[in-house]
């Protein structure tokens, strides 16, 4: 990058119609949005998956295990393509056929991106949360049961607070992974940071510069996330004696 054109390239990162700065900022904002929404869906699915995997019913365990094993064995890019091209067209047909949606229903790449990332990260988070639940001493759950707590109360007061504390490091790792994997949705045409970078790079032919800026954007997101998760972890462990 150490060429004489360096100076003018950074000027091209200006805001507005002449610069790429606003495109990159918009892309970064969408990357954060897609990651947050996908992560939220992933957490909900992950919790369901964790309970299915720990369930006493064999058929529920089977569903939970098949979900996590299949998703984890497939490349994320293939899963995103599969959801977008096969999943959405099937869903669109289903919704139109059921009369829920109008004929011209078309699921946008943005929605498909969030849904597919959520479905993928649900599998990874299911295993993280399952580990968190299993780390709770069984005596505590037994004691809660002996006090006559019913299942929802037991979950709210005993299982959930401790599970989250044990699961935070794993959840942090998965958050870092989802922010990086969100770059894959540019392949199905959802706009995010890498799409902004590719737009600038192909337009100006300055591939090295604009892809480096893209990488720096993701790196900044990673570093901020790491700092935030260290804080969350410290806060979650504030009442626990360090070994």
């Amino acid at each position: 990058m150490a060429s004489k054109s360096d100076h003018s390239l950074w000027l091209d990162m200006a805001w507005g119609a002449e610069g790429w700065g606003d495109e990159f900022a918009y892309g970064l904002a969408l990357t954060v949005q897609i990651s947050l929404a996908g992560y939220a869906i992933g957490l909900a699915l992950g919790l369901l998956g964790a309970f299915a995997k720990l369930s006493g019913r064999p058929w529920l365990r089977f569903i939970g295990d098949s979900y996590t094993t299949t998703i984890r064995a497939l490349p994320e890019l293939l899963l995103i393509l599969l959801f977008y091209y096969a999943g959405t067209s099937a869903l669109e047909k289903l919704l139109v056929h059921a009369g829920v949606a109008s004929e011209d229903l078309q699921i946008s790449p943005f929605v498909a991106a969030i849904a597919s990332l959520g479905l993928i990260y649900g599998a990874y988070l299911a295993d993280v949360l399952r580990g968190g639940i299993q780390a709770i001493p069984p005596g505590q759950i037994e004691a809660a049961r002996a006090y006559g707590m019913h299942a929802p109360l037991r979950f709210r007061r005993i299982v959930f607070p401790q599970m989250i504390r044990y699961a935070i490091p794993g959840m942090g790792n998965q958050w870092l992974n989802i922010t990086k994997d969100s770059a894959l949705v540019s392949v199905i045409g959802a706009y995010e940071l890498l799409s902004a970078g590719r737009g600038a790079a192909t337009f100006t032919k300055e591939y090295i510069f604009y892809y480096s800026v893209t990488a720096l954007g993701f790196l900044g997101l990673t570093i901020v996330s790491m700092v935030v998760f260290v804080r969350i972890e410290r806060r979650a462990n504030r009442g626990v004696r360090r070994a």
Binding site: A183, L194, R198, I208, Y211, A215, F218, L219, T222
Partner: peptide, 23 residues
């Protein structure tokens, strides 16, 4: 290590493929 683990692999692949192509 921070660069490799902190940026998406797809961006790294583009940077190598298009970046080296430019260089």
């Amino acid at each position: 290590i921070l660069l490799m683990r902190g940026t998406p692999l797809l961006v790294q692949i583009y940077l190598v493929y298009y970046g080296l192509g430019q260089a």
